[in-house]
Simulated assay, not measured.
Amino acid sequence: MQFTNGMRASEIPVERWVKSAASAGIGECVEVALVPGGGVAVRNSRFPDGAALLFTKAEMTAFVAGAGAGEFDELVARSA
């Protein structure tokens, strides 16, 4: 099966969806899952059957490293 951006998250056969322990538990979370064959899927926890975005492991690694280094902190601060 080929996975594409925007397909329903429920159509991607993942073992489990994971969200950050830092989530407040009020439905404002994203969840991630490993996709069979490689890559990572991301979905909105409020719409678990909605569209998923798919990223390669390299793309997700770069994003997580950037987030950990504070590269996106300004975006969050401005939207508050």
Rank of each mutant, 00 (worst) to 15 (best):
E59A: 08
S45P: 05
E71V: 05
T56N: 02
R16T: 03
S79K: 14
A77D: 12
M7W: 09
A41K: 00
E15T: 09
A62G: 12
D73P: 01
S10F: 10
V40Q: 00
S20G: 11
G70Y: 04
A21C: 09
D49H: 09
A52I: 05
V18W: 06
L54P: 02
A22W: 11
E11R: 15
A80V: 14
A67V: 12
G25Y: 10
A22I: 05
S79Q: 14
R43H: 01
F47T: 08
A80D: 14
A52Q: 07
L75T: 01
G70I: 02
T56G: 01
V30F: 11
F63W: 12
A24R: 13
K19I: 04
I26K: 15
M1R: 02
A41R: 00
G37E: 03
S45L: 07
F55N: 04
S10C: 11
S10P: 10
F47H: 13
W17Y: 05
P36W: 07
A80Y: 13
F3M: 05
T56L: 03
K19S: 05
A65M: 10
S45Q: 02
G38K: 09
F72L: 11
V64K: 08
R16S: 07
V30K: 02
F55W: 11
A58F: 09
A67D: 10
A21P: 05
E74C: 13
M7E: 14
V42I: 10
I26V: 15
K19R: 10
F3V: 08
P48L: 01
F47Q: 06
V32K: 02
I26N: 15
R43E: 01
V14H: 00
G50D: 01
G27V: 06
L54M: 00
E31S: 06
V64Y: 07
K19N: 04
R78A: 12
F55I: 06
G38V: 10
S20W: 06
F47E: 14
A58G: 06
Q2T: 11
G6N: 04
E74T: 04
A24Q: 13
G70W: 07
S45H: 04
C29P: 00
G50P: 01
E28Q: 14
R8E: 11
A58P: 04
V40G: 00
G50W: 00
V32Y: 01
Q2A: 09
A67H: 12
P36K: 03
G66L: 06
M7P: 07
A9Y: 01
G50V: 02
I26E: 15
S20Q: 09
S79Y: 12
L75G: 04
F3L: 09
I26F: 15
G38I: 07
A80G: 13
G6I: 06
F47W: 08
E59Q: 09
E74W: 13
A67P: 05
R8T: 13
N44P: 02
V35D: 01
E71A: 15
G66W: 08
G66V: 13
T56E: 00
A22V: 08
A22Q: 13
A65R: 14
G66N: 13
E71T: 08
A24K: 11
A9S: 13
A58T: 13
F72G: 05
A69H: 11
F3N: 00
R16K: 12
G38H: 08
G27Q: 11
F72Q: 04
V64L: 08
G50Y: 02
I26A: 15
F47D: 08
